[in-house]
Amino acid sequence: MSKTIKLLIVTVMVVSVAAFTIPKENVVEGYKIGDIAEDFSLKNIDGKMISLSDYKDAKGFIVTFTCNTCPYAVMYEDRIIDLDKKYASKGYPVIAIMPNNIAVKPGDNLESMKQRAENKGFTFPYLIDAKQEVYPKFGATKTPHVFVLEKTKKGMVVEYIGAIDNNYKDASSVTTKYVEDAVDALLDGKEVPQKETRAIGCSIKV
């Protein structure tokens, strides 16, 4: 085999590997189970800045990355509302965060968020991650993507990461409610039964 042919084969192999390798800077690592989540300060649809530390009496949070434009997020809206209605009074309010780049998804801008929240009757803050600095810290990749945090002496411990339940298409056909099971366990002082699942939804737009 000639040196030219060998060089050509090596070049093709290198290009092929590079084509299927995700650049390290584009990989979202984010929090793992047991990590301490940092607080943040993001603008709510009412114009006020919201932080986790504002909730003095909270026992934890259901942090949900969601948006207006993703069909999966829309299908889960009523269930997110129900989570807040069920658990906010028990110390685990929903904090919804819109992580998309609005230049890519104009329908997720603050005005549209405000309108959506009003139309649906959101009972929780709907914050915009305008600089896209918060979602990478969490490691969110989808809308919706949920992180259940428990307030402890060490800080906000990540206790669950993933999907809301096991049927995005039909709430009436759900057999396992991952987020509810996690929060119920924490309220009872028990171990979360399933700490991590695969989030199903649209990719976050950067």
Results as ranks from 00 to 15, higher is better:
125 P>V: 05
51 S>D: 07
26 N>K: 14
197 T>F: 02
72 Y>A: 14
119 N>V: 10
123 T>N: 08
114 K>D: 08
166 N>L: 05
21 T>E: 05
26 N>S: 12
68 N>Q: 12
50 I>F: 06
72 Y>R: 09
165 D>F: 02
37 A>D: 06
114 K>V: 05
169 K>I: 08
167 N>C: 00
91 G>F: 03
126 Y>T: 09
141 T>K: 15
44 N>R: 04
13 M>V: 15
92 Y>D: 03
21 T>H: 08
205 K>Y: 07
57 D>L: 06
80 I>N: 00
183 V>Q: 04
172 S>Y: 01
159 E>K: 15
124 F>E: 01
66 T>W: 05
144 P>H: 11
199 A>C: 10
22 I>C: 08
205 K>A: 13
51 S>L: 12
112 S>W: 03
2 S>I: 06
206 V>T: 10
1 M>Q: 11
51 S>Y: 08
71 P>L: 14
149 L>V: 13
4 T>S: 13
201 G>L: 11
13 M>L: 15
28 V>C: 02
8 L>F: 13
90 K>C: 00
99 P>N: 10
1 M>L: 14
76 Y>N: 14
50 I>W: 07
185 A>N: 03
26 N>M: 14
114 K>E: 12
137 K>D: 11
30 G>I: 01
83 L>C: 09
12 V>P: 03
176 T>I: 13
176 T>Y: 09
197 T>I: 08
46 D>S: 11
100 N>D: 13
152 T>I: 05
154 K>D: 15
163 A>C: 03
79 R>K: 12
8 L>Q: 09
120 K>G: 05
175 T>D: 08
192 V>L: 07
27 V>S: 02
